[in-house]
Design a protein around this nucleic acid. Structure first.
Lengths: 225, 225
DNA sequence: GGCACCGATTGACCCTGATCAATCAGCTTT
DNA sequence: AAAGCTGATTGATCAGGGTCAATCGGTGCC
């Protein structure tokens, strides 16, 4: 499942490896930070489940405008094809391992039904996550967007520190901006606001400590102050 | 497939009834304009394929902000569940007929594999369409958004008038606004701009004539004038 | 036919976030 | 350690689109 605004089922999809008993065991793919797994338009030969690391899925407009569609965390399935070609670029943000699956497993129901069912459910979860993301892109303010983003990441991959919570951000500010439909400047300013209001501390550029999770959640839903 | 920005495969998914040979034939559901098929949170018992008419899928924020997730046209599958509950409201915009399918067909691979495969592909197409929509919500200007919207509708359900093309808009201005992440006022002003630049004529509130389809397509991609 | 109602349009003004530009800070490199 | 590079932050200004408000116009009702 992808990073999106909080829903009650955010945490219910723990990392569930797809590998069924009948799946042909393919060796894992390894990507170093900055390496591309595929580009938009490439023919889809494989689907991948992220085993470890984080990838970024992006689309480009001809004039260079960019939209980050999703960040792929362990457990996420990436590379779902609609027409037979990839419709995003995929780049690794960290050292990443992925389990490949042949695209053909989508074609025939003849193959492993368990795997097939798992894929369908992965697709359905992705649709649900994307619907949340719509609301964020279309209807939320910069503050709400960033607060939502941090809330989801905290729930998904945050580290409990007792009262507070630590979140690692492997992506750049401009990745965050392009995910939320903002500019890097606005993302930066919004981080500063959150820091000034003591909701978060920015430990370093890739680590944020959430001191007041409930306040952040309130902000993500538009409750001011 | 849902209404989104133009892609080369927009028109390749003609109305393909899912009904496989082994599908239990259920009687079609009929909805009058304004009638709701389900609400967000309702338990999913059925999926539906739109046979005729148009429906609107919406999500609400607690403070009343609304996002139209999609408009469902004939051939579209609606009601995909992620957790077992609907995550949108669904309202008919016109007289609508839908073919219901039991939700359980998603559960067991035991049932009709053809139907199952069709559903997976419907889900994949929806993901693809939603990714286009992301770019629109996150990165496009009001002009580009409305132009994109009209282009897609024209391609999907437009009527050829020789040089120009007629598009029916069963939804209200505020539905369009909530789909594009704008306000009704901005949608209205943008329609007026398009009219003033002779790209379209507004025949009546629910009918737009596209006089210069290539100009509209150019606008949808950010090419000004 | 006249009136009321509600969505659409238009206008005036404002604000959020974009743009342009200048540091700043954490690195690598030498 | 100094220099240089790159991405992040901060500042100043601007504009696209939101907000608030008035008017228009089509539809239905009396």
């Amino acid at each position: 499942m992808y990073v999106t605004i909080p829903t009650e089922n955010s945490s219910t999809f723990a990392f569930l490896p797809l590998c069924g008993t009948t799946t042909p065991q393919t060796i894992q793919t390894h990507l170093e930070p900055g390496a591309y797994l595929y580009y938009e338009g490439d023919e889809v030969e494989w689907l991948y489940q992220v085993t470890s690391g984080v990838v970024r899925l992006t689309r480009l407009l001809s004039d260079g405008r960019r939209q980050v569609i999703a960040f792929g965390y362990p457990g996420d399935i990436i590379g779902f094809p609609a027409s037979g070609n990839h419709h995003t670029d995929c780049e690794a943000l960290t050292d990443t391992y992925l389990q490949p699956y042949r695209r053909s497993i989508l074609e025939g129901g003849a193959s492993d039904p368990k795997l097939y069912s798992a894929l369908l459910h992965a697709a359905l979860n992705e649709i649900s996550a994307m619907q949340d993301h719509f609301m964020m892109l279309g209807r939320k303010s910069a503050n709400e967007k960033l607060a939502s983003f941090l809330c989801v990441l905290a729930a998904r991959v945050g580290t409990d520190l007792g009262a507070s919570r630590s979140v690692n951000l492997p992506m750049s500010r401009s990745d965050i901006a392009d995910f939320l439909g903002l500019t890097t400047e606005t993302v930066s300013r919004t981080f500063t606001q959150l820091r000034n209001s003591k909701v978060i501390t920015i430990e370093n550029i890739h680590t944020v400590i959430i001191h007041r999770p409930t306040a952040l959640l309130a902000l993500s839903q538009g409750h001011h102050t």
